[in-house]
Design a protein around this nucleic acid. Structure first.
Lengths: 192, 192
DNA sequence: CGCGTAATTGAAAAGTATCAACACTGGTGG
DNA sequence: CCACCAGTGTTGATACTTTTCAATTACGCG
């Protein structure tokens, strides 16, 4: 549930070392609960997460949030918008203090054109996003809340300490009340 | 709900005209209810759909199917597997008679490396897949079955004639019984 | 006609949402 | 030092939605 991509991060940081002071790339630190992107706005930058934890979510017309993904080190966001040249469709908010590399969208696209290794890494990253979404949603659809919680626990054993309850509920697409009931059930069964 | 990509299809067909008899690319016709890919197998080819309609679905350990997408003209499948170099995670089955271009995976990756336009089209295609999945699943999560049916109807007005009921249910991730109840409700309300 | 597949329907059980009240925690200011 | 507040987490009762199970009908085709 928390996506990471160490290969891309380390490639990118090596790239920065080889090309000192690349213009078009900056490092930025966000505090807890800051917004990095806001849904339905234009982006200036594509971001690569160096450290920290963020949530990427979509707010629907009735104000309900649905969390797409939690992103950790090496995650990229804004690349979809840069490639499609459209507005953002998600909001990205920090859960912890977070360091990001901000790459100007124009520069990102240039890099994508000119740097084969980077191009391949982004192709793989996008493919992984499609794959991960497919797997997650199908599991999600075909199982009840408690099963989904156990599935999360396998990936992030201490998820209850890391992720706020409301965010967890928004990730699973259920109400807080139902989440709490499921957690209680699992605790009673000593599975959690 | 039925994805198409005319831009890619027409680019690809022009490419075929410019490069007659490209080895590594074949056209193949599948009849109704044939399997093009089977989940958890290795692919030989990436497919571009010329005409027809297929469903792409994932079967879970308990035998339940979840339909990821219905694909129409210009859709590509197998590209994720070719890029990630992994087994298939979906089964692709024809709903109607279908013509596909089959591109050997190795050749597909070569094309991706060497042909900038093709590379860009695939980057956009993957980005669109991520975007579409995000939008679909969030809508799906945050709305009840009837709303989802109305949403489908906007895109494909005659979906009830085109898509078998069981497939529709598997697409929405609900049981056939629930789908039928929702359809009845909408019919009574004259919304369908 | 008979067979298999797809579609339909009812009743009961299971799962989830809604609403509303209450508990815990860490500030902040009088 | 305590009262208050906002944010976060917890719980119960009830209503609603969806699933499960089972029985029945409709349709296409050899």
């Amino acid at each position: 549930m928390i996506r990471e991509n160490i290969e891309l991060l380390s490639y990118f940081e090596q790239y920065l070392i080889r090309n000192k002071e690349v213009k078009g790339i900056k490092k930025h630190i966000y505090e807890k609960n800051e917004e990095i992107f806001v849904q339905n706005s234009y982006i200036k930058n594509v971001c690569i997460l160096k450290s920290g934890l963020v949530k990427c979510f979509l707010t629907d017309e009735s104000g309900k949030d649905f969390i797409q993904e939690f992103f950790g080190a090496g995650s990229v966001f804004g690349e979809i918008e840069a490639i499609r040249n459209t507005q953002t469709f998600c909001t990205v908010t920090t859960i912890t203090t977070t360091e990001v590399y901000e790459i100007e969208a124009v520069f990102f696209n240039k890099l994508l054109q000119e740097n084969k290794k980077f191009n391949t890494l982004i192709l793989q990253l996008l493919s992984n996003k499609v794959y991960n979404k497919a797997m997650r949603y199908s599991y999600h659809q075909l199982h009840i809340i408690t099963d989904n919680l156990l599935q999360i626990k396998e990936n992030v054993p201490d998820f209850l300490e890391i992720i706020p309850k409301q965010d967890l509920a928004n990730y699973l697409g259920v109400t807080l009340r139902s989440l709490n009931r499921a957690v209680t059930t699992l605790k009673n069964e000593r599975k959690i």
